[in-house]
């Protein structure tokens, strides 16, 4: 009896399979180049300096004899080296204060430009828009001089105040306010509500999504802001997480300790990112330039 072999059809074109595999290989390779550094940083921070120097390339937390072991001493050292308690407090104060002030004052201004009428409104708006587009680095030196003149150098105020207004935030919030249905405001006005009340109780809640996105981005920007605090504050007790970490790097601590410090400082934001992933990745897309 003949034994015939029956074949299922090759539903997938050979060329398409090759093409797709190639794409996946490239993308996954690229992904690895992103994941490995972080992973290495995390693992190495859990090893002793001795262990690190004794072994060659490895992505496992091995000690000097090649056994798996987790060493938390680096973190202890980094805690003190970073002066974590004080520094964390400083950072939180600055981030929260700046974000709060930023959102509040910027939305006030944005609302004014969107809805209120006053003399020379458009001219002022254009001037401010244009001048605040001056790149940050250009403003560093002048701002330092002003802070020096005002006597607020070497204080937390210097970290909060100079960044309280942001033209990007004002612009986006103004767009949002323009999109709010005027009828609601007019109804409130007839009821006798003053402009501030309308702004606070009625319109502001309606732009919550944008406020949340801007709040997140502002907070993250403050958290990681290094250059300005470095320039303006010299007192070690006024350091933020960013400047403290930079100090740690330059001071000859063990590589493992430095990495532990980096993990401590960067981990919170990354974790928050993974939790809020869709808002951030989605939020950025909404404000993105249309091709």
């Amino acid at each position: 009896m003949k034994k015939t072999k029956f074949r299922f059809p090759a539903r997938i074109n050979g060329a398409t399979v090759a093409k797709k595999t190639f794409i996946y290989v490239v993308l996954i390779g690229l992904c690895l180049s992103f994941i490995i550094p972080y992973f290495w940083m995390l693992i190495t921070s859990l090893r002793t300096e001795l262990a690190y120097n004794s072994t060659g390339f490895t992505l496992l937390p091995l000690d000097e004899q090649g056994h798996l072991s987790l060493f938390f001493g680096n973190y202890k050292e980094a805690f003190t080296a970073l002066n974590l308690g004080q520094v964390l407090l400083n950072t939180l104060i600055v981030c929260v204060a700046n974000t709060f002030l930023n959102l509040f004052l910027n939305s006030l201004a944005a609302y004014a430009f969107a809805r209120l009428k006053f003399f020379a409104k458009n001219t002022i708006f254009k001037i401010i828009l244009f001048s605040m587009m001056v790149p940050g680095t250009v403003m560093l030196v002048p701002n330092f001089l002003i802070c020096d003149y005002l006597g607020i150098t070497d204080s937390l105020f210097a970290l909060i105040l100079p960044f309280v207004m942001s033209v990007y935030n004002i612009f986006l919030l103004r767009q949002q306010f323009l999109g709010v249905d005027k009828g609601i405001e007019e109804a409130a006005r007839i009821e006798g509500a003053g402009p501030f009340r309308i702004y606070l109780r009625i319109v502001l809640p309606l732009v919550k999504p944008m406020m949340v996105v801007l709040g997140i981005t502002t907070f993250m920007w403050n958290y990681g802001n290094y250059l300005w605090p470095y320039i303006v504050n010299v007192d070690p007790n006024l350091r933020t997480l960013a400047t403290s970490l930079a100090e740690l790097t330059g001071s000859g601590y063990d590589l493992t300790v430095q990495l532990a410090g980096a993990v401590i400082v960067s981990a919170p934001m990354i974790i928050v990112f993974f939790i809020l992933q869709k808002y951030i990745v989605g939020g950025t897309m909404e404000g993105a330039v249309k091709g």
Binding site: T4, F6, R7, F8, P9, R11
Partner: peptide, 13 residues
């Protein structure tokens, strides 16, 4: 018959 079976296989799993 074999031909018919192959045509069935041609439809997929």
């Amino acid at each position: 018959p074999d031909e018919f079976t192959q045509k069935m296989y041609d439809q997929g799993r």
